[in-house]
């Protein structure tokens, strides 16, 4: 078994009286695609927001381990440091691009921190020093690499808001990858894509997993994506983990079937007892 990169232990998130996530524990491993699935309102995006620092969990521990062995306790870090220091990047369910900036600028903003250091926090960068120029060139190369991978190179100088929906989704993934993450969290990357685009997305995610040392954590409703590419599936329902295993295991798990499809009336009591409701 490969090395654990993200370890979620006893994660609980309460909003007032509502328990959105209840005592959730799971792991995401290096070089694997972990899918987080569940019916609407199961708390998947809340898990993401806890991991990426947008929410502070009520209870629990989130440990991120780099391949170098450095450990980060995500629940204690401010959100921008989770990306910068812990190298966790994310995308959003409703795309959040910088619409009025060009595609290229979007990818350069993602490389803000290394460029900021290279420009001496603007103190010497303002005089266009060699250090900054070469750092910017490197950043441009990274951006061009991702634009080529995503097939967006011809649109580099267009405003991000002008791209078609599928391209915007891919640009958001490219932007997240430009931060050089060890863990990439994708919130419904296939939402709104047609079957061909969804297939391309599968290939893209496989490429990222293969060519980059990046583990992927995925929220998805599109089962053709989940079952085809994920190595490990975690199923949530009402903030509780109901199943955890390989796609084949999860697919046949009666609890998962019950959560998604329901059960016949006469079996409700039996299933509820089994699930622990």
């Amino acid at each position: 078994m490969s090395q654990t990169i993200l370890k979620v232990e006893h994660l609980t998130m309460r909003f007032g009286g509502l328990t959105a996530i209840n005592n959730l524990s799971f792991e995401a491993r290096r070089g694997e695609i972990t899918a987080l699935i569940g019916p609407n309102g199961a708390g998947k995006t809340t898990v993401f927001n806890c991991i990426t620092g947008f929410y502070k969990p009520t209870e629990g521990m989130l440990t991120l381990t780099h391949p170098t062995g450095n450990e980060f306790l995500l629940e204690r870090m401010p959100d921008f440091q989770i990306n910068w220091k812990a190298k966790v990047a994310r995308t959003f369910q409703n795309i959040r691009l910088f619409q009025g900036m060009t595609v290229l600028e979007n990818l350069l903003v993602a490389q803000h921190n290394p460029l900021m250091v290279a420009s001496g926090f603007s103190l010497h960068g303002i005089f266009s020093t060699k250090t900054y120029i070469s750092a910017e060139k490197l950043a441009m190369d990274t951006a061009v690499y991702w634009l080529e991978t995503m097939g967006l190179i011809d649109r580099a100088d267009d405003p991000a808001g002008d791209l078609p929906y599928g391209d915007q989704r891919r640009l958001e993934i490219a932007r997240a990858m430009c931060t050089g993450p060890y863990l990439l969290c994708l919130d419904e990357p296939a939402a709104g894509l047609n079957p061909k685009e969804s297939n391309d997305l599968n290939d893209l995610l496989m490429t990222i997993r293969k060519d980059h040392d990046t583990a992927i954590l995925l929220i998805e409703h599109d089962m053709s994506v989940v079952m085809k590419i994920s190595d490990h599936v975690v199923v949530l329902d009402y903030g509780v983990k109901i199943s955890d295993g390989t796609p084949d295991f999860v697919r046949t798990d009666p609890k998962v079937i019950a959560a998604y499809l329901g059960v016949p009336d006469e079996e409700v009591a039996a299933v509820e007892a089994e699930v622990g409701l």
Binding site: T52, G53, F54, D79, F80, Q81, I82, N83, W84, A89, R90, F92, R96, L97, F98, Q99, G100, M101, V109, A110, H112, N113, R175, A176, T179
Partner: peptide
């Protein structure tokens, strides 16, 4: 100016 939440997710 464009999107503050996206900025935070990118380590700014």
């Amino acid at each position: 100016r464009e999107d503050e939440i996206a900025c935070r997710s990118l380590g700014i």
